Computed example of a mutant assay.
Amino acid sequence: MITLRDVSKTITEPDGSTRTLFDRLGFALRDDDRSVAITGRSGSGKSTLLRILAGLDTDFTGTYEHDGRVLERTPRRMAEHRLRHIGIVTQDHSLLGDRSVLDNVRLGVPARAGSTDRARDALEAVDIGHLAGKRPRRLSGGEAQRVAIARAIAKHPVVVLADEPTGALDETTEDGVLALFDQLQQAGTKFVIVTHSERVAQRCGRRLHLHHEQLIECGT
């Protein structure tokens, strides 16, 4: 699984001052974890931590391990790791407006061969197979979020990293997305979810709170 050891990171604010986000922070996604919620105040570094877990942010000190091996933090090596093992759901969905829903989901599949079938299967898994030919601008917020989830799971990742996946959704749509996450967890996919929502955090099997540059284990 994924382990971060002694991760420290400092950022530069717009006014030129510096601020420490993490100070020798540790994180481990364990074999028995199905879902982990990461909570914390705005600006505490939750989204940055998720980007580090995704291999999108390599500007930190410390080590990133996968299955007990330290990974070299080069853009190429981390991109390979992300492509093979990690699905990502962003806050803004990150859908391409000039592509169909199906094409957007195909982008999440590493190999071209079979990508269409896997994309269609992923869309069916999130109950929006009928939207395959639509463009993102014609989708509701809940539909767009399901497309983003389909893209994340199309390659059958070991773990899905989700940044505020229900932040812009109404309660009914949120319940539908969380039920889908439960189904995917039962099928073996692990989730790490950054959230401000108490409802979402309570649905996760484990909860970590980012506070004073550290992750604190919370009761669930």
Rank of each mutant, 00 (worst) to 15 (best):
T58D: 03
Q186T: 14
E13R: 15
S197I: 03
A152L: 10
T166R: 06
K190H: 09
V89S: 02
E198R: 06
H196V: 06
L139S: 07
S140F: 03
A125S: 10
A162F: 11
G68A: 04
E174H: 04
F27H: 03
A187V: 05
G205D: 08
S47C: 12
E174S: 15
A148N: 03
A150H: 03
T12R: 15
T116I: 11
L50F: 09
I128Y: 02
H156M: 13
T220W: 11
K134S: 07
D170H: 12
L95A: 00
G43Y: 13
L25E: 08
L102T: 02
D32N: 14
Q185M: 11
A144C: 04
V36A: 05
G43S: 10
G219I: 05
G205A: 09
R207H: 15
E124T: 05
A201C: 12
T172H: 04
R99T: 03
S94P: 00
L208P: 00
L215E: 01
D32M: 10
T63I: 03
T116F: 05
V101N: 02
H81L: 14
K134H: 10
H130G: 04
T189Y: 01
R82T: 04
Q214L: 08
T20G: 01
A111S: 14
R77H: 08
V200R: 02
R146E: 12
H93N: 13
A54Y: 03
F181I: 12
R76L: 12
G114S: 13
T3A: 13
L169S: 02
C218A: 11
R137Y: 09
Y64E: 01
G219E: 12
V158D: 13
T39M: 15
F191A: 06
P14R: 15
I86D: 02
T173E: 11
E143K: 09
N104C: 04
P136T: 12
R51C: 01
D121Y: 06
V192Q: 07
S17Q: 13
T74N: 05
F22W: 10
P157A: 10
D121S: 12
D33S: 11
E124S: 09
R120P: 05
S42K: 06
L49T: 00
D175N: 09
L102R: 09
L29A: 12
F27N: 05
G176S: 10
V194D: 00
G114R: 15
V192A: 07
T12D: 00
T20D: 06
I11S: 00
A187K: 15
D23K: 14
D67Y: 06
R19N: 11
R138H: 14
L169K: 03
E143H: 08
L96D: 00
R77F: 01
F191H: 05
A168C: 06
A179F: 02
L83E: 01
R5M: 06
Q183S: 12
L96P: 01
R106E: 15
E80T: 05
G188Y: 11
R84Q: 07
F27P: 10
H196P: 01
G167Y: 07
E143D: 08
T116E: 15
L210M: 09
